[in-house]
Structure formats: structure tokens, C-alpha cells
């Protein structure tokens, strides 16, 4: 049960197609929205220095961000939200989305972080960057938890969409009619994603109780990812302030939105 805002009782506008989609169709659409493998395409010189590792990490993040915007636009219903909501959601969750992608790529590689097919790091390689080992360890621990749960691709894509759509829900309250309408659309869209995740879990052949527990365990992991992202944001801001790394383009814009 949840309290519906008043506009949710109005007839469904024709453009809200996701509300009429089956969970299976919705998952199929967000699976198609998945970005391709993104390569760093740099000649990595090992051992890394603090500056070279930070430069590789930020170069890759900047590339991934461009694809992330394209991914968000392909989630059914996202572009029907107000532009302000689209911007706010993305600026709040970008590092969480990058981290969940990293966790997914690393889930079958214990002890390693697979940033891209051509940029893989062992835990110990984090030693060369001050303060990053703590973040690597938290990422590896979250990855191990997803490994224990045997995270499925369908569940992963739903969790990623949930991070995006849930990222800004509690930091603003709608003031104008337009903002309220967008908020209502956002809540309906979140309903569709939750339905899709429930459906994905229901296909795994678990008992009803095990399905409920799995839903709880998977969604509880999202609070850990938010925590790691906040730590990562602080770390990147510090590295930028100390001029260890030059942050530019879209990454700079997204980072500054969070400072």
C-alpha cells in the first residue's frame, strides 16, 4: 500500500506507455537500453602512479557518463519527466550508476575490479592512490555480496533503473503543478521498475517467502552503494582540489553539482 498523489487518480495520459507494459516487456526495453562495453583505450604504464591511475579512472568515467545519458533516455517514461527532474536525477546518482556497473562487471572476478575490458585492477593496486583503498574494499565487499546472491542480469538492470529513479525522491518536494505532474509520472515509473524486479525474481523458481527475502536483500544493497558513492564523491573532490587529477567535461559538471 502507498499513498498516491492526487494526480495519480487522473486518467492515464497516452504517452505513459510504460504503465501499460508488462513487466517482461519493460525489462526487455531496459535490457536493450544497456550501454555497450566501454574501453579506456589507453596505453597503461605499470606500475601506476597516483596521477596516472586517477587520470585513467576519470577518463573512463567521463566516457561512461556520455553513454549513461543515452541509457537513461531509453528507459521507458524517462524523457516524459520534466527536464529539471531528468537533470536532478542524473546529477544525484551518476556515481552510484557507475559503481553498480563496475560491480556487475566484477561479479565473476573475486578480488578484482573490472573498470573496463582493458582496465582491470587488483585490490593492492589501489595502494598508489591515497584514500582509494578504502573505497576499493567497499566496492569489493558489495561485489562479494552480489556474488553470494547470484545476481541475475534482469535483476541488475532493474536495480540500476531503481537507483536512477529513486535518487532524488527525498531531497525536493514539488511546488508547481508541472513539478507535481512530473513527480507523479516518476512515482508511476518507479512502480513499473519495482514490478519488473518482482517479476524477474519470480522467474527464479523460489518459494514466495524466498522471493520476498531476495527482494529485500537486493534493495538493501542499494543503500550500501549510495554510501560508497558518497565516499567516492568526497575522494574525487579531494583529488581535484589537490590537483592530483584534472577533471573536465561532463565529469566536471557532474562533480560540481555534488560539491
Amino acid at each position: 500500500l502507498h499513498l498516491e498523489p492526487p494526480l495519480a487518480r487522473l486518467p492515464q495520459p497516452p504517452h505513459e506507455q510504460h504503465a501499460a507494459m508488462s513487466p517482461e516487456e519493460f525489462i526487455s526495453r531496459i535490457m536493450e537500453a544497456e550501454p555497450p562495453d566501454i574501453y579506456l583505450m589507453e596505453d597503461l604504464k605499470k606500475p601506476f602512479t597516483e596521477a596516472s591511475m586517477m587520470m585513467s579512472l576519470t577518463n573512463l568515467a567521463d566516457k561512461e557518463l556520455v553513454f549513461m545519458i543515452s541509457w537513461a533516455k531509453k528507459i521507458p517514461g524517462f524523457v516524459e519527466l520534466s527536464l529539471a527532474d531528468q537533470i536532478n536525477l542524473l546529477k544525484c546518482c551518476w556515481l552510484e550508476i557507475l559503481m553498480l556497473g563496475l560491480i556487475w562487471r566484477s561479479v565473476d572476478h573475486p578480488g578484482k575490479l573490472i573498470f573496463s575490458p582493458d582496465f582491470k585492477l587488483n585490490r593492492e593496486e589501489g595502494q598508489c592512490v591515497e584514500g582509494i583503498m578504502e573505497i576499493f574494499d567497499m566496492l569489493l565487499a558489495a561485489t562479494a555480496r552480489f556474488r553470494e546472491l547470484k545476481l541475475q542480469r534482469e535483476e541488475y538492470v532493474c536495480l540500476k533503473a531503481m537507483i536512477l529513479l529513486n535518487s532524488n525522491l527525498c531531497s525536493t518536494s514539488p511546488q508547481t503543478a508541472e513539478e507535481l505532474a512530473s513527480r507523479t509520472r516518476l512515482l508511476r515509473l518507479l512502480d513499473s521498475v519495482i514490478d519488473a524486479l518482482v517479476w524477474a525474481i519470480s522467474k527464479l523458481g523460489l518459494s514466495t517467502q524466498q522471493q520476498t527475502l531476495r527482494l529485500g536483500h537486493l534493495t538493501m544493497l542499494l543503500s550500501h552503494i549510495r554510501h560508497i558513492s558518497n565516499k567516492g564523491m568526497d575522494h574525487l573532490s579531494t583529488m581535484k582540489r589537490k590537483n592530483v587529477v584534472l577533471v573536465y567535461n561532463l565529469l566536471l559538471e557532474m562533480l560540481e553539482a555534488n560539491i
Binding site: V66, L83, I87, L90, K91
Partner: peptide, 24 residues
Amino acid sequence: SSLKEKHKILHQLLQNNTSPGDLA
């Protein structure tokens, strides 16, 4: 409009149909 000015690149990517391949 301040939101759009503060997030020029993000705003541009959300509004136009440029594919990431073109920008990468």
C-alpha cells in the same frame, strides 16, 4: 534556466539526439 546553465553539457545531451559514439 539556472539549472540549464549550470548543466550545459548534460542539458545538451538530454535535449539532442547526438549518439554517444559521435562524442566519444
